[in-house]
Design a protein around this nucleic acid. Structure first.
Length: 323
DNA sequence: GAGATTTGACCACG
DNA sequence: CGTGGTCAAATCTC
């Protein structure tokens, strides 16, 4: 299974280069457009907003294309989504595979198989965990605040997650919950995420995503049971909800995503809440009070946020991030 | 009854 | 050998 790790074909490389080029160009444009201060919040901002959205879509497309090509070592994106409120809920980073890891098999259909033979199970497991290590991984922090509900990016929460485990982590006060995409078996979507409440600040949850969804989001969201993992977690679980578990439920909201600046680090721009004009397929139409998650965030989701090391988590972050 | 969660056990990795 | 991640049977909820 490892045999074919050779590099991409010339065409592929060229393609990747082109994509990267386009991506970079889009990002620059984005940086230029994104000057929050100069735009009057009212009138022109709408147009600007649109521009940003479109830009994001463009960038997102590039990124997705790259991801599809298995070329995930994208340069960090520099976007800062801002819920516009409180605490800088930070968003920590991502580390895409190292450039060197342009891994061969452009297609990951290998996992297919799914053959349910009990025998394969273990192997499948092993196999996956191996591959999983190569998946992009990033962490976001979601803060729950009594008034604002959730802060943090919820990009991925449009997807439906299924909890498959919980574990006490050494040195951590709170257990860590493991979720995987509900469509794992049906669509071979290997995206997973881990949710862990911060020791220091119980109102903050660190959500570590691994891998991007290969399932069709539209499909995923179509059956509107937007179950938020945390929510579910809370729900059936009379457990010791230390605190704002309920808030957690309302969780699915906006989050401050902070992707570190790449070019200059100074042009950060914030995203206003975006209008739900995006149509990712009928999706959960609602962003009502607590938006499910703005499509935009979805787009952004494809970016590989840069790691932002938080003083509070100096130790493990760097390490765990690199894979 | 289907699908999701809980929870103890298993496994791989460092 | 300890720890983190995943599995899977039992259980729960709708």
């Amino acid at each position: 299974m490892e045999g074919k790790k050779d590099m991409l074909s010339w065409e592929q490389k060229t393609l990747v280069n082109e994509l990267i080029f386009g991506l970079e160009a889009a990002k620059k444009l984005q940086a230029r457009l994104g000057e929050p201060s100069s735009s009057p919040p009212s009138s022109s901002s709408r147009a600007a907003e649109m521009n940003e959205i479109l830009l994001k879509q463009i960038i997102s497309s590039y990124e997705k294309s790259l991801v599809m090509l298995n070329w995930s070592s994208l340069p960090p994106v520099q976007l800062i989504l801002k819920a516009g409120s409180v605490a800088p809920v930070t968003h920590s980073g991502v580390i895409p595979e190292s450039p060197a890891s342009i891994n061969g098999s452009p297609r990951s259909e290998d996992f297919l198989d799914g053959g349910g033979s009990s025998n394969t199970h273990r192997q499948e497991h092993v196999f996956n965990s191996k591959k999983r290590k190569m998946l992009p991984k990033w962490t976001e922090k979601v803060r729950i605040s009594p008034e604002r509900g959730l802060e943090g990016s919820q990009q991925d929460d449009v997807y439906s997650w299924r909890k498959y485990g919980q574990k006490d982590i050494l040195g951590a006060k709170f257990p860590r919950s493991y979720y995987r995409c509900t469509h794992r078996s049906t669509q071979n979507c290997w995206a997973t995420k881990q949710v862990q409440r911060s020791d220091n600040d119980p109102t903050v949850f660190e959500v570590t995503y691994r891998g991007t969804h290969t399932c069709s989001r539209a499909t995923a969201a179509a059956p509107p049971p937007p179950a938020s993992p945390e929510k579910q977690d809370t729900r059936t679980k009379p457990q010791i909800a230390q605190t704002p578990n309920e808030l957690l439920e309302s969780l699915k909201t906006s989050l401050t995503v902070r992707t570190e600046g790449l070019d200059d680090g100074e042009d950060v721009f914030s995203f206003p809440n975006t209008p739900p004009f995006y149509d990712y397929g009928n999706t959960n139409d609602y962003f009502g009070g607590l938006m499910e998650s703005s499509p935009i965030f979805d787009v952004v989701d494809w970016f590989n946020p840069t790691v932002e090391i938080n003083p509070e988590f100096p130790t493990f972050l760097p390490d765990s991030i690199y894979y």
